[in-house]
Lab assay of single mutants.
Amino acid sequence: YFQGQLNAMAHQIQEMFPQVPYHLVLQDLQLTRSVEITTDNILEGRI
């Protein structure tokens, strides 16, 4: 994955969860590489 793709995914998640800091979303995406998994992590309070 290149950074631009991760940034696009992070923006997509931020639209759904504007209360979660962008850098935390991006940090999780770098591990998961998945909008779905990061979204689940937010919903389950891991982020």
Rank of each mutant, 00 (worst) to 15 (best):
Y1H: 13
R33Q: 15
Q14C: 12
I47Q: 02
R46E: 02
A8W: 11
E15K: 14
I42W: 04
E44H: 14
L29S: 00
D40S: 14
Y1E: 15
E36A: 10
A10E: 01
E15W: 07
A8S: 09
E44R: 15
D40C: 15
G45W: 05
N41Y: 03
Q12N: 07
D28L: 05
F2P: 15
Q19H: 14
P21G: 04
I13L: 10
M9Y: 10
Q30T: 10
Q14E: 05
M16F: 07
D28A: 04
V20K: 00
A8M: 12
G45N: 07
Q5F: 12
E44Q: 15
I47K: 01
Q12M: 13
S34W: 05
Q5V: 13
V20F: 11
R46G: 03
E44T: 14
E44M: 14
H11D: 11
V25N: 00
E44K: 14
Q3F: 03
Q19S: 11
G4Y: 09
F17Y: 08
Q27R: 08
L29D: 01
L26I: 10
I42V: 05
D40I: 14
S34T: 02
P21W: 05
V35E: 04
M16W: 09
V25S: 00
I37E: 09
M9G: 03
V35D: 02
Q5Y: 13
H11F: 08
T32N: 03
Q14N: 12
Q27S: 11
Y1C: 15
T39Y: 07
G4D: 15
I42Q: 01
H23E: 15
Y1S: 14
T39L: 13
D40V: 14
Q3V: 07
R46S: 04
G45Y: 03
D28G: 01
Q19M: 11
L43F: 05
A10T: 04
N7Q: 14
N7P: 09
A10C: 05
E44Y: 11
R33Y: 10
D40H: 14
H11E: 09
I42S: 01
F2A: 09
F17Q: 01
V25E: 02
L6I: 11
Y22T: 12
P21V: 06
